[in-house]
Nucleic acid binder design. Structure first.
Lengths: 342, 342
DNA sequence: TTGTACGCGTTATCAG
DNA sequence: CTGATAACGCGTACAA
């Protein structure tokens, strides 16, 4: 925070003076559908250009109560999936004339003070892809009294809408594929317990296996933290326990990549010859030749579109908008990691 | 853009009324070093809490001319390096009490209108990691009349400061390592021509090879666009030309990963047995076991710290600040892709 | 220490 | 179509 001798910016008054018109005329020249004669508009625009004037939106925020800024709360950018999500989100918001006030959050701890700062800028809404879903966070978000749109979260409460990937359905589909491939020793590689999406994927997977008549005692459950290393380590633990899996469903692609490498280096198991693997997110690395990983694509585009619809709806609502949920089916992208051996 | 029945927010007037004090007292209660009695402050804070009042920074922007928002212009988030850079940048800015107004830019074309929108929010400065460096962009940024801090760009002009990785030095170091490993058929895998950082790396590499007495006719140059696929394709072209390299320096890690996979799949060349490879950026995937890629780490932390220093300096300057440049040495992280065969 | 009054730059309203 | 005027919510001299 520095003190600064603010260089006085060019104002509409300056332009008005130069153009020989009133301040209102200047305002009208920059308002899309204001009633102004072409000649006046021309004069104003010329004067504005010569002075380097740009309309200042700050006073407009005071008057309208709308800042056209949306707080985007995000974390885990080291996961390419979230990086892509942010990219799409930022683009979609800009296309709607909304600015992105970014709040990067490592852990839930910093969230509270972060939100406070955001709020003082009078953002119109919050969009978040935070995977965490504690009651505390939900309450904090509800208290903002502005629309909140979540990605893949289990947060519920007034003002909060959600766009979810069909995590449960994808889990079931993964189970069916395992059964079809005659996987006798399946493994579920879970993400952090507080990640609602991961839980739903795991539940769907179990349900799918059970529906196929598989006994749950045959299912090995491992836990990671959504990182490559944690996937590698989880498989290493399996190796030490002397378990050789022949089918793995990983809660995300990064862990799946770690698993593939550990299977090869630790156990000498080659994918898909000895073990088939499915991931989630369809990150670019899943398509890299060394991994060639079958994965569920969340269709980030559709999820972002869904989020924008929920956002529009919430912004139009006069009062606390109805909490709504939008579910997008994930699409199985089959690659080499689940190819049947000849 | 929606019309909205703005729910009138709680203002300092409301708090003042409830607390039975003046509006200025409320203002003082929220100003760190204002002269106010503990008792009054207490009363105000209690009233504020009960009403859910939060100071509104928007009017403060009008009064001070400072918004404490910084425009962050970034692109290429599909490259984990930029995702990390954004993460660090956002964190560093927040620690300084600066908000991030994010502008995601795919190509230079959208930059102009994007900057216009940012400017109307009266941002205090711009930080950008755009790899492009055209004169047009430089002029556009200079015209903003606010401090601009660039990452790895060759942009020069009034108001513009730059933090660069020592791209040229790293190129020289890469060449030395090649020579040391007796690489007879080196390959330079360049990024897009308009990427100044890539050019500097290539120039350093050539210079280093020449200094070691190598004839430049022995150097094969390939061009990619910084993506995995372009690295894969470049090596495929090499294969079709019947060239078998034994040392590759890639302008970034993603292309290097593509190269490693193409070398194996197309030519049956194994790294480092048949060919050694160096990348740049030290992205997480460089450490993944399937690639195990030696890479130059740009020390994003130090670059961000450097950027913050330049930013502070520029914000303190009363007038157009002096253009400055800060260079951070890259660190060679040696992994398996350059290990000497036994 | 506290309250009053003014101003920041723009848009909306109203009269001309 | 155009110009004058009020109003947005807060910070800050100034007076008490």
């Amino acid at each position: 925070m520095q003190e600064q001798a603010a260089i006085r910016a060019v104002t509409s008054i300056d332009v008005a003076r130069l153009a020989g018109v009133s301040q209102s005329a200047v305002s009208r020249a920059f308002s899309p559908d204001a009633s102004i004669s072409p000649r006046t508009k021309q004069k104003v625009l010329a004067a504005a250009a010569s002075l380097g004037y740009r309309p200042n939106r700050i006073p407009a925020i005071m008057l309208s109560g709308r800042s056209y800024m949306v707080g985007v709360v995000i974390g885990g950018l080291e996961n390419p999936f979230y990086a892509t999500a942010l990219e799409r989100l930022a683009t979609a918001l800009r296309e709607r004339g909304l600015q992105v006030l970014l709040m990067y959050v490592d852990d839930a701890l910093t969230l509270d003070s972060a939100l406070d700062q955001l709020l003082s800028y009078r953002i119109d809404a919050v969009v978040t892809s935070l995977a965490i879903g504690s009651k505390t966070v939900a309450r904090a978000l509800s208290q903002l009294q502005i629309p909140v749109v979540c990605f893949n979260s289990s947060l519920v409460g007034p003002w909060i809408s959600t766009v979810n990937s069909n995590n449960h359905g994808a889990g079931v589909a993964a189970a069916r594929l395992m059964v079809e491939r005659c996987v006798a020793r399946p493994v579920w590689l879970a993400g952090p317990g507080k990640n609602a999406a991961s839980r739903a994927r795991g539940e769907g997977f179990c349900q799918g296996l059970q529906e196929a008549g598989m006994c749950m005692t045959g299912l090995t459950r491992l836990r990671g933290d959504d990182t490559y290393d944690s996937g590698y380590d989880a498989i290493t633990r399996l190796w030490k326990r002397g378990i050789r899996p022949n089918g793995i469903f990983s809660s995300n692609d990064m862990m799946a990549c770690g698993a593939i490498d550990a299977l090869r280096e630790r156990m000498g198991l080659i994918c898909p010859r000895d073990v088939i693997i499915l991931g989630y997110d369809n990150i670019p690395q899943a398509g890299w030749r060394s991994y060639d990983l079958t994965s569920f694509d969340q269709h980030t585009d559709r999820m972002v579109t869904g989020a924008m619809e929920l956002l529009d709806e919430a912004l139009l609502a006069k009062d606390s908008p109805l909490p709504r949920t939008h579910v997008v089916d994930a699409q199985l992208i089959e690659r080499g990691s689940t190819t049947l051996p000849d």
